Simulated scan of single mutants.
Amino acid sequence: MTTLNDVAKKANVSKMTVSRVINHPEQVTEELRALVHAAMKELNYKPNVMAKALANNRTQIIKLLILEEMDYVEPYYMQLLVGIANELDKHAYGLQLVTKRNTQIGDSDGYIVCGMREADYEWLNTLEKPIVLFGENTHGYNFVDSDNQKSIERAVDYAISLDYERIIFVGVDVNEPFAISREKGYLSAMERHNKYVSMFRLENRSKYSAAFVRENWETFVPNTAFICASDRLALGIIREVKEQGGSIPEDFGVIGHDGVFLDRIAYPYLTTLKQSVDKMGAATAQLVLQKINASGSDQGNILFDTELKLGGTTRLKKNQIHT
């Protein structure tokens, strides 16, 4: 059986260095970590997880709390779970999915929290272990999220580059940081382009955005682009514009936000700002482990750029091909 000494000899480092790489990776350089991990892989050395946990007074468990309703149709949270779980596995950590009312069942080393709303923060403040949020917040918690403001700015810039004259923003009607940031992105870009602002807030369901188009159809003129704060809202816009006889993308353009699944079931395929949910999940796992190893101290926030994913709901530029 391969031992710690074998790994140390293979990597040409001390046994203490190997131990630090396994138990306190933040205390060694990236070069040393890579050297030791390569030796461990070559020798097929598996650290004793239970011994590591006992030595560090750890459980090797991270609890994941999802505080909003999950829609079984969308794979958004599945992608997130895969990103988190795969990253935790690299560090010999297990993932436990729990509900709000069961957070105190069993111990853990920290929490990842998703889908929080303003009303949840009083309760979150009672949790004693390190916490990282998946989603921006204004309460001082470290978080990982898309750069929501920059993302919508990019959508507006793109719509204007396609010569759409009127740019309408359809936002999510919640007083939460992600929604506010997306509105700020729209307002900032419209001001920069000296364009007339036209902004609406709706419940995040396609039936409400469809009703919005139906009830206001006579006010919408050709050469209009709808920038939507979610793909759900964009689907309703597409459906009702076609129902009313509007031409997409020639007369009416639609750009969504998220790019997880719904953009692929739209017809035509939806142009959207795609979030890298699996990579964001991995980053969230890394951040909570850093926070645990740093005794809960502040580790900063991580913002991801979104990717403009072209579909058939916006016009083509010259030399441009929809995917």
Results as ranks from 00 to 15, higher is better:
Thr2Trp: 04
Lys10Thr: 13
Lys10His: 13
Ala11Thr: 02
Asn12Pro: 05
Val13Thr: 09
Met16Leu: 13
His24Lys: 15
Pro25Thr: 12
Glu26Val: 05
Glu26Pro: 02
Glu26Lys: 14
Gln27Gly: 01
Val28His: 09
Glu30Ile: 14
Arg33Ala: 11
Ala38Ile: 06
Ala38Tyr: 08
Leu43Ser: 02
Asn44Asp: 13
Val49Tyr: 00
Met50Ser: 15
Ala51Phe: 07
Leu54His: 07
Ala55Ser: 15
Ile62Ala: 10
Lys63Gln: 15
Leu64Pro: 06
Ile66Met: 09
Ile66Phe: 13
Glu68Cys: 14
Tyr77Ala: 06
Leu80Phe: 14
Leu81Cys: 05
Ala85Thr: 09
Asn86Trp: 03
Glu87Met: 10
Glu87Ile: 00
Glu87Arg: 10
Leu88Gly: 05
Lys90His: 09
His91Asp: 04
Tyr93Met: 10
Val98Pro: 02
Asn102Leu: 05
Asn102Gln: 11
Gln104Asn: 09
Asp109Ile: 07
Tyr111Ala: 02
Met116Arg: 02
Tyr121Lys: 04
Leu127Trp: 05
Leu127Arg: 11
Leu127Asp: 04
Leu133Met: 13
His139Thr: 09
Asp145Cys: 11
Ser146Arg: 10
Asp147Glu: 12
Gln149Ile: 00
Asp163Thr: 09
Pro177Gly: 04
Phe178Val: 09
Ile180Gln: 14
Ser181Tyr: 05
Arg182Ser: 07
Lys184Ser: 07
Tyr186Phe: 10
Leu187Tyr: 03
Ala189Pro: 03
Met190Ile: 06
Lys195Ile: 07
Lys195Met: 13
Met199Tyr: 08
Asn204Gln: 06
Arg205Glu: 13
Ser206Phe: 12
Ala210Ile: 11
Phe212Gln: 01
Arg214Phe: 07
Glu218Phe: 08
Thr219His: 10
Thr219Lys: 15
Thr219Ser: 14
Phe220Ile: 06
Pro222Leu: 09
Asn223Asp: 14
Asn223Leu: 07
Thr224Val: 12
Phe226Lys: 02
Ala234Leu: 11
Glu240Trp: 04
Glu240Ala: 02
Glu240Gln: 15
Gln244Pro: 05
Gln244Lys: 15
Ser247Arg: 12
Asp251Tyr: 00
Asp251Leu: 02
Val254Trp: 05
Gly256Gln: 10
Leu262Ile: 01
Leu262Phe: 08
Leu262Trp: 12
Ala266Ser: 11
Ala266Tyr: 03
Pro268Phe: 04
Gln275His: 08
Val277Thr: 14
Lys279Gly: 05
Gly281Ser: 11
Gln290Phe: 03
Asn293Ala: 15
Gln299Asp: 04
Gln299Asn: 11
Ile302Ala: 03
Phe304Glu: 12
Thr306His: 09
Leu308Phe: 14
Leu310Tyr: 05
Gly312Thr: 05
Thr314Asn: 00
Thr314Leu: 06
Arg315Met: 08
Arg315Lys: 15
Lys317Asn: 11
Gln320Leu: 12
Gln320Val: 11
Ile321Trp: 03
